[in-house]
């Protein structure tokens, strides 16, 4: 009787210890994953990698996601970069760059903006909000103006 109870006790103890180990591992796994930073290491969406340096030809543009909204990066004919929110101030359509006009153009109602974001023609009531553009290594970083 004494023997069986002792072996039972050892069994329970080893069961307890191994389940506890599994439990501990289960607890530590999320902690470990949490500690390792995610691929986007910035919490605030104040800046974003918009493109690679050689991605855009002069006189072309690209729409990219900036936080939860689209933004547009434009490379002027002289190679200079400009970036704006791509949300048209009229009805929130996404604007695009028109090579033939050398203007930002909204397909929805033909709103046009110049390379400073100001309205040239069409229904948009306000200019597009401009962003800062910086080149860091081979990346083009677009950030909100402070």
């Amino acid at each position: 009787m004494k023997e069986t109870s002792k072996s039972r006790r050892t069994f329970l103890l080893s069961g307890l210890l191994s389940s506890l180990t599994a439990f501990g591992a289960m607890m530590l796994y999320p902690v470990w994953r949490f500690i390792m930073p995610p691929k986007v290491p910035e919490s605030t969406q104040n800046s974003v990698k918009a493109a690679k340096v050689n991605e855009l030809e002069p006189n072309s543009g690209k729409v990219f996601p900036f936080g939860s909204k689209p933004a547009i990066l434009i490379r002027l004919g002289n190679g200079e970069y400009r970036a704006f929110t791509a949300v048209c101030t009229h009805l929130q359509c996404t604007v695009q760059y028109r090579k033939d006009f050398k203007l930002i153009w909204c397909a929805c109602h033909n709103g046009r903006f110049d390379m400073n974001g100001n309205v040239v023609s069409g229904p948009p009531p306000l200019p597009l909000e401009p962003f800062e553009v910086a080149i860091s290594g081979s990346d083009i970083i677009v950030s909100k103006r402070a």
Partner: peptide, 17 residues
């Protein structure tokens, strides 16, 4: 707010912690 949002959405298991 953005950093808590980041924890909740981008950090793995951030929602849990």
């Amino acid at each position: 707010y953005e950093s808590v949002q980041f924890i909740m959405t981008s950090v793995r298991f951030g929602w849990l912690i």
